[in-house]
């Protein structure tokens, strides 16, 4: 009996010890990843999750930043639907986005394709086209404001020097020209970026596809149409999506060049949000809840297109 009891005790002790070890191991398994994830998690919580949650709440409130906020339900969103300026901002944003999608997809694709055809000097051209990409939206906005300036700007100066005085315009002060003028700046700045994306993607198209097409008698235009474009289908979608997201968010350049003017002719969702919240000179009556409702519209559109972007990215990874 004694021996039995002794054995039972040792077994029990051993079991206990093993259990403790197992718990330790299990804890260790969670502890180590937690330590690795904790710093990032804290920052994401403090500087994304909490402000985002506050934004959702704020979009349901009326608040001028000084007096206590009052809960108004969906009133801000209802007011948006009746807001003439908001409607114009939506229209301008759609116009801007569609135009940038059109030009900033087709032109870079063609340029990348030419540069990828084995032409000499490709590196130099790529370098030149990429230069505007590294310059901030603020600086490009300021630079182009100088170029567009009606009296001293180099654009009107050049037109006058060429004897084309009739073509000179108030580029950024003309209601019908202001958006196209801003779109030109966007194309100037982003062409190199999208070209690089296409160029990088073209490196993974197998050379034999082009050779096979050439043997079949396809000229370079047909090779572009029947090899390059289909092979880059996902990349093209991604570029369109990126353009959409950037278009919906557009703020810096427009704000720097026109601040949404003249008379809301270049108002985008981004500039309208900013003006509603902080005023042009920081003096007007701030409507923070209303501005946040506009921000939620931008958020919704961005989220939808980001999901598409990730889906396409995954497809692409699975293919390769």
């Amino acid at each position: 009996m004694k021996i039995f009891r002794g054995e039972a005790v040792t077994t029990a002790v051993r079991e206990l010890r093993e259990e403790r070890e197992a718990t330790k191991r299990r804890l260790g398994k969670i502890l180590v990843p937690t330590m690795f994830l904790l710093p990032a998690a804290l920052f994401l919580l403090a500087f994304t999750a909490i402000p985002l949650a506050q934004a959702v709440v704020l979009s349901l409130q009326r608040w001028n930043g000084i007096q206590p906020a009052t809960f108004v339900g969906l009133r801000n969103y209802r007011l948006l639907l009746e807001d003439e300026v908001f409607r114009q901002a939506v229209g301008n944003t759609i116009y801007y986005t569609l135009a940038t999608i059109l030009f900033q997809t087709t032109v870079p694709l063609i340029v990348a394709s030419i540069l990828n055809s084995g032409i000499r000097g490709s590196t130099i051209f790529r370098f030149v086209y990429f230069l505007p990409v590294i310059i901030s939206l603020t600086i490009t906005g300021l630079l182009w404001s100088m170029i567009y300036e009606p009296n001293f700007g180099i654009l009107n100066e050049t037109l006058r020097a060429l004897g084309l005085k009739s073509l000179t315009q108030l580029w950024l002060a003309d209601r019908s020209l202001v958006l196209p003028s801003i779109i030109v700046v966007s194309i100037w700045q982003s062409l190199g970026f999208y070209m690089m994306i296409f160029f990088a993607a073209m490196q993974s198209i197998p050379e034999d596809l082009y050779e096979a097409a050439a043997i079949d008698g396809a000229n370079s235009l047909q090779r572009f149409r029947f090899v390059t474009v289909p092979m880059l289908r996902n990349t093209i979608i991604v570029v369109i999506v990126l353009n959409t997201i950037n278009g919906v968010k557009s703020f810096d350049q427009v704000w720097v060049m026109t601040a949404g003017g003249p008379n809301h002719a270049s108002e985008t969702l981004g500039t309208y949000l900013y003006r509603t919240a902080f005023g042009t000179l920081g003096s007007s009556n701030p409507q923070l809840g209303y501005a946040t409702a506009i921000a939620m519209v931008i958020l919704a559109v961005s989220l939808i297109f980001s999901v598409i972007q990730i889906r396409v990215g995954q497809n692409r990874n699975n293919e390769s």
Partner: peptide, 8 residues
């Protein structure tokens, strides 16, 4: 997007 959290 930055705009979503700008005000809060």
């Amino acid at each position: 997007p930055g705009q979503a959290i700008l005000i809060p």
